[in-house]
Design a protein around this nucleic acid. Sequence first.
DNA 1: GAAAATTAGTTAGCATAGCTAACTATATTG
DNA 2: CAATATAGTTAGCTATGCTAACTAATTTTC
Lengths: 151, 151
Amino acid sequence: MEPEKGKQIPELDPVAVADRLHSAAIHLLRRVRTRDTESGVGPAQLSALSVLVFGGPRSLGELAAAEQVRPPTMSRIVAGLMRAGLVRRYIAKEDRRRLRLEATAKGTDLLQAARKRRVESLAATLSQLPADRIEQLRRAAELVDQLSRTM
Amino acid sequence: MEPEKGKQIPELDPVAVADRLHSAAIHLLRRVRTRDTESGVGPAQLSALSVLVFGGPRSLGELAAAEQVRPPTMSRIVAGLMRAGLVRRYIAKEDRRRLRLEATAKGTDLLQAARKRRVESLAATLSQLPADRIEQLRRAAELVDQLSRTM
DNA sequence: GAAAATTAGTTAGCATAGCTAACTATATTG
DNA sequence: CAATATAGTTAGCTATGCTAACTAATTTTC
């Protein structure tokens, strides 16, 4: 046996672990995304709306940065959200080039409903697991999230 | 206090855990997806190609099911992959309505390179962590993947 | 064994969502 | 005040999702 550096546990190879994390995340989202269409709002709009609902009002540029898309893309996403009455916008008084975007009550309601639906089947599966298993998964989520924040 | 059913540990609420898992997966993929464009192939094409490379040849319908998209969508994705010389197709002899799709050598090479690039920054972050931390994350990936499979 | 039904995949046409380039309007700087 | 920088929008491209309607091949039914 090789006693050095964990070579005998091939899974400690960072590339392999990264790959597994990546693929696990993809599989999870695939299972969960299905019901998102029920809200009648596209995935990019839903995601942008959630930033406004959970993170509070902000400018278009900030929203684009948060969603990691370019301003023209966010401009169109916001246009869709406004057409649907889910978002309001004001011109910022201190700098009249900037917009202040905020979710309407309708937007907040829609998002909460979508979020609930989205995790429903996942939660249903979870609730059939033993408590210690759920706790393991909670910690797994925490670990992965923490990892993303340090990248 | 409520002594019943773990109410005093709010994180055991399956909905909350489901929500955290979902959000952790989103954050991870956001960080990682950036470099996918370097391959010059769209995300849906890359994902479909990976099914063929890692899962072996299959029909268009099977590929659509694996990717959870409708046949017309997969038809167009495959057309793009063929145009780029990444996938070959044959008409199945036993049932001439069906196609047999398989990755070309070029497709396999491109996917391996893309996969490597994709997890590169994630792997780089991982390798700065202590070994036990990496092991924790590996197990986290395993747990989440297992969960997705049982949904 | 021929007509009917089913199944596999494609084509057409629509919407969303990503991008860059080029534009307008406002703010800042020299 | 002119030049420059910044915030968003518009135009136009590609990719990706969908449904409806089609062709071709197979299976079922009578």
